[in-house]
Amino acid sequence: MFHTQVPTVDAASVPADAALLDVREQDEWDAGHVDSALHIPIGEVVARLDELPDDRLFVVCRVGGRSAQVVQYLVAQGRDAVNIEGGMYAWEAAGRPMASSDGSEPFVL
């Protein structure tokens, strides 16, 4: 079995106006997420493909594993998708803005 190369980008290089897809679970999202991101847990991505924008999609999870799987799937479907290397931990470390669902201090769960 072979692995195809997954397109990746570091968190600091993601454009501020990028279309982001967060594939983490609800509790992870609630703790801390990118305010403008679309939240579709990994298990729902296939069923909700029609909700994804047509532009380049930057996909994120906690550390990059789940989002890499989603990027692999999206690329196989002919979509322009990129994995955010290091996930939300890298996003937070890069000082990128985050929000929580309840207004408290956001963190990566």
Rank of each mutant, 00 (worst) to 15 (best):
D54H: 06
Q72H: 13
A94C: 02
S104P: 12
V45R: 13
E92S: 12
V45W: 08
L57E: 03
L20M: 03
R66H: 13
W91Y: 08
V45I: 15
A94I: 01
V9E: 13
D22M: 06
D22W: 04
M1H: 08
H3M: 14
T8R: 04
V9P: 14
P41W: 02
V108N: 04
L52Q: 04
S13M: 12
P106E: 03
W29R: 06
I84N: 09
A18N: 01
G43M: 03
E28S: 10
R24Q: 10
E105A: 15
N83A: 06
R62E: 14
L20P: 00
Y73H: 12
R79K: 12
G78E: 02
P106Q: 08
A93Q: 06
V60K: 11
P106L: 00
A31L: 06
A47N: 05
L49Q: 13
V70G: 04
A16F: 02
L109W: 05
I40V: 08
L52E: 00
A18H: 01
P7M: 09
G78D: 05
S67I: 07
S67T: 10
L74R: 11
I42M: 14
A37C: 14
S36D: 11
A76S: 14
L38G: 10
F58L: 02
A93H: 10
P7D: 10
F107I: 05
V14P: 08
Q77S: 04
G43L: 03
M88I: 05
L20V: 10
F58M: 00
T8M: 11
V75E: 12
V46Q: 15
V60S: 11
V46R: 07
R66D: 15
Q77D: 03
A94G: 02
L21T: 01
A68L: 08
S101F: 05
Q5F: 13
S13T: 05
D30H: 11
E25W: 00
H33I: 03
V70T: 12
L38N: 09
Q72N: 15
V46K: 12
L21Y: 09
Y73P: 12
M1K: 10
T8C: 15
S104L: 04
E92W: 15
A90T: 01
A16D: 11
S101T: 06
R62M: 04
M98N: 02
L21N: 02
L109F: 01
D17E: 08
D80W: 04
A16S: 13
G43F: 06
V46A: 14
Q26E: 13
R66C: 15
A93D: 09
E44K: 14
G86S: 09
H39Q: 12
G32R: 03
T4M: 15
A37H: 12
